[in-house]
Amino acid sequence: MSELRGHDLVKYYGDLEVLRGVTFEVAPGEVKVIVGPSGSGKSTLLRVLAGLESPDRGTVTLEGRAAGPGEVGMVFQRFNLFSNMNALDNVMCGLVEVRRLPKTDAREQALAFLDRVGLADHHSKFPDELSGGQQQRVAIARALVMKPKAMLFDEPTSALDIELVREVLDVMEALARDGMTMVVVTHEMRFAHHVASSVLMMDEGRIVEEAPPDRFFSSPKEERTQRFLALVE
């Protein structure tokens, strides 16, 4: 059974059809990487899968039902940490406000997850006082602490200085090794190559091609994929 599934998704922004009947699924423990030019609908697909936007047609299911709050974790390009809270409060927030955990329990769990992304020492710092890479790791911990069934990453390293990309990718790779179900929109082709179970090419609101990374990068079938890869590499 597939873990997270989007069936025949259609999404309009005004007159613009951003998703044109996308069917997508990711099995437990799989890592799917989505690539494609900007405006191809990658981010919209993630937002629909995360439940942040409702599709104009089609359905999203998690284990065959509607996802509950926090069950599908989302990591944003611009981190979106709550700027009025320090790192610890950011990670605790979902546990306290959504899961209704007592503060002492929430604090303990949040610290454990901050430790997991290597930032336990920085728990009292505010987003403004953390580097982009650190902020993104806190954002990952904030999503993970909710014990999601799947994690979605929307260009998680695109807003980072080049020397900070690695620390975020390391956290994501460790997560993949631990068997997290992941969907990652990224331009990091090496990450796709090493970590993905399969790579998807999106263009103009459709999935053009899907293949295991070896085949996707060495012998893409579609002309659109070949053109895209020629530009990126």
């Binding site: 995360a50 942040l52 509950g68 709050p69 926090g70 069950e71 974790g73 989302m74 944003f76 611009r78 979106n80 940490l81 709550f82 700027s83 927030c93 979902g94 406000e97 959504v98 954002a139 904030r142 999503a143 909710m146």
Partner: peptide, 14 residues
Amino acid sequence: VDPGQELAGRALGM
């Protein structure tokens, strides 16, 4: 206030 803040809250299920 940055709209990304609300988005992050909704992603957590708040």
